[in-house]
Amino acid sequence: MTRPKVAVLKTRPETVIQDIEKLMKLAEFEKFLDKNSVTILKDNISWHFPYLSSNTTPWQLEGTIIALKNAGYDKLVAVHNNTVVTDPFKGCKLNKLTPIYKKYGVEERYNFLESDIKWVRYEPKHKMLALHKIYPNGIHIPEFFIGKNILHLPTMKTHIYTTTTGAMKNAFGGLLNTRRHYTHTWIHETLVDLLAIQKEIHTGIFAVMDGTIAGNGPGPRTMIPVETNFILASADQVAIDAVSAKMMGFDPMSIKYIRLAHEAKLGTGDPREIEIVGEDISNVNLKFFVGDNAASRVGDILWFGPLKGIQYIFFRTPLVYIFVFASYFYHDFVWWPLKGKKIQENLRKTSQWGKLFENYPMD
């Protein structure tokens, strides 16, 4: 049996664009993405503020687009999603992704705008672990996604509810609508269900992960940025998340969504069964941790703790807007001005990647 391949490279600002193309070739992206199909670029904007370690980086996006175009993939479309606490228009601008889409002529669509994308009911062929229970009236997905390639652009980082987040979690925003907070109690099972659906609807799946500045701590927003200089790529979404998790210092098979996906044969989560090409990472252990913040402590109580049984009252009634506002206020008006903004300002002065980010245009 052929082992899945995950490519890992060390990079630097001066060569990162070329290194991403080399990385994708090492992971044999042309074997997995149909050139006759439209390729959807699914970036990752966890926070609209330009917080390096939280979002897709401009060099990650630019390097991927160049590699695709050089290989003859001309039908590229970016699809953005909305969240209750993140503004995608603001996020694309502040994270300097919008000028790159314009520069390379990539169409942008928004899955929350009816004028852009229609949502349709979908009956998965694969046995669902959670989505059929969470959405008893039917699972709905963006019609535009069906019959197209998807290329995910996640970041190497930790997550308060899933330990790590990467390629599998990146489908969360694209395939679920704004009521995706319904799934948080069953978040691991949800990610596995979404991968199963992706395998049914897409003509190809691939991921290019940025770890040049990785996120450590209570992610996906309030993290400690760590300069690691790594980039990863793979067609196996489970394998790339497993390798990323191992590099961060976690046991991949102890992370529920990775283990469940491995057991369901949707990918390979055991690092011993994965071929890693490019960099020797056998001794890499970043010793990352997760921890908590104010938002996660409330979530732990309501989604996983003693109030789990009555979460319907909090999240499927107008009471949800209280929690939405609280999260928005905490992240944007407390943590960002008091901590995040200062961290990023220092990063842009002291880090080679922070300086590269400054050199990218915003308009």
Rank of each mutant, 00 (worst) to 15 (best):
I205Y: 03
F206D: 09
T317Y: 14
G204S: 11
A242L: 09
V85Y: 11
G278S: 14
K103W: 06
R297E: 15
D363N: 14
G354W: 07
F112W: 11
I40S: 02
F112Q: 08
F325M: 05
G105Q: 13
S54R: 00
G174W: 08
R259Q: 12
P252H: 02
D34C: 04
G204V: 05
H331C: 14
G166T: 01
K199I: 12
S244K: 02
A130W: 09
G267W: 08
I117D: 12
G309A: 07
Y328N: 08
V334Y: 12
K42S: 02
W119C: 08
D251S: 00
N95P: 02
R348N: 13
A130L: 05
E358F: 04
P136G: 07
A27N: 04
V79T: 15
G291I: 02
L23S: 03
K308W: 11
T162R: 04
V334R: 03
I240C: 08
K102R: 15
F89R: 02
T222N: 15
E263A: 01
W303S: 01
P99D: 12
R12L: 13
W47C: 06
S327M: 07
D193V: 01
L302Q: 02
T83Y: 15
N70V: 10
E107D: 05
Q18S: 12
A167D: 08
S115T: 13
R272W: 14
L41F: 01
K90N: 09
E275S: 11
F288A: 04
S244V: 03
K127F: 08
L319G: 07
N70G: 11
F315R: 02
I17T: 12
H48A: 00
H132M: 11
I343F: 15
L97R: 06
I205T: 14
K308R: 14
V79K: 02
G138F: 04
I310M: 13
W119R: 07
M1A: 10
A294T: 10
L41S: 01
I274M: 10
I274L: 00
G105R: 03
Y330C: 04
Y73G: 10
Y122R: 09
G278P: 11
Y135F: 11
K125F: 08
D74W: 09
D236Y: 04
T212F: 10
K75G: 09
I224R: 05
K341W: 12
A67I: 06
W47G: 05
G269V: 01
F230C: 07
C92N: 15
E200V: 13
F329R: 11
F144E: 14
I146K: 00
E30R: 05
K265G: 09
F32G: 04
L129G: 10
H126L: 06
S54C: 14
Y182Q: 06
S115V: 00
S244Q: 14
G305R: 07
M24G: 06
I40Y: 07
M253D: 12
E62M: 07
E28F: 08
R121P: 05
P99I: 13
K256D: 12
V85A: 12
L129H: 14
F29Q: 02
T203P: 05
T39K: 05
A245T: 00
I274S: 04
K35M: 06
F333P: 07
R12S: 15
